[in-house]
Simulated scan of single mutants.
Amino acid sequence: MASSPYFSLAVLFVVALGFGLAPLGLAWLWQKVFSPAKPNEIKNAIYECGLQSRGDAWVQFRSAYYLYAIIFLIFDVEAIFLLPFAVAFTGLGAAACVSMLVFVLLLIEGLAWAWAKGVLTWA
């Protein structure tokens, strides 16, 4: 059985499964053995920073913040893709330079679109 090429993969899968389920099992066992179940109004009340909750919990959040974060992530990942090209620039051919030029032009087009739509304005 140890000679199977998938044996090490199966062992790693079982270890990964145990690594995730062991803390859950231990927490469940701790709760059953050491934590007495005495539900009452105070224990079942919602606790938030020591303050009584008032009103609705729903807060309206501007979607522009999400767009701003997504634009940041896109241009942050751009830097990760540009780094290997910059490191190996002298050893690359014309096709690699053209493909990187297309990549950068598409990113510039995305930046121009975001700027024209007003996504980059914070206020």
Rank of each mutant, 00 (worst) to 15 (best):
M1Q: 08
A2F: 10
S3E: 06
S3Q: 04
S4H: 11
Y6F: 03
Y6W: 01
Y6S: 02
Y6R: 01
Y6E: 02
F7E: 04
F7Q: 04
S8M: 08
S8V: 07
S8K: 11
L9N: 05
L9D: 07
L9Y: 03
A10T: 01
A10M: 05
A10K: 03
V11Q: 07
V11R: 09
V11Y: 01
L12F: 09
L12E: 07
F13W: 03
V14K: 02
V14W: 06
A16L: 14
L17G: 03
F19M: 13
G20F: 10
A22M: 15
G25H: 05
A27S: 14
W28Y: 08
L29N: 03
L29K: 12
L29E: 04
W30K: 13
Q31A: 08
K32C: 00
K32Q: 04
K32L: 01
V33G: 00
F34R: 11
S35E: 11
P36L: 12
P36W: 04
A37V: 10
K38I: 11
K38W: 03
E41F: 10
E41G: 07
E41H: 08
I42M: 12
I42G: 01
I42S: 12
I42D: 13
K43A: 14
K43T: 15
N44L: 15
N44P: 00
A45L: 13
A45S: 15
A45W: 07
A45Q: 15
I46A: 12
C49L: 14
G50H: 04
Q52Y: 10
R54S: 11
R54H: 10
G55A: 10
G55S: 09
D56W: 06
A57D: 14
A64V: 07
A64W: 00
A64Q: 06
Y65V: 07
Y65I: 05
Y65K: 02
Y65N: 01
Y66K: 12
L67F: 13
A69K: 10
F72H: 13
F72W: 08
F72V: 09
F72P: 00
F72M: 07
L73M: 10
D76I: 00
V77C: 11
E78K: 04
E78A: 07
F81Q: 06
L82I: 06
L82M: 11
L83K: 09
L83Q: 10
P84W: 03
A86S: 15
A86D: 12
V87P: 01
V87W: 06
A88D: 15
A88I: 02
A88L: 14
A88C: 12
A88R: 13
T90C: 05
G91D: 08
G93V: 11
A94I: 14
A96L: 04
A96E: 15
S99D: 06
S99P: 00
M100H: 07
L101R: 02
L101H: 02
L101E: 06
V102E: 02
F103H: 14
V104F: 00
V104T: 10
L105D: 04
L107D: 02
E109R: 05
L111R: 07
L111T: 04
A112W: 04
A112N: 02
A112M: 08
W113R: 05
W115I: 03
W115K: 08
K117D: 09
K117L: 14
G118H: 06
G118D: 02
V119D: 05
L120N: 04
L120S: 03
L120C: 11
T121M: 05
W122K: 11
W122S: 05
A123F: 12
A123D: 14
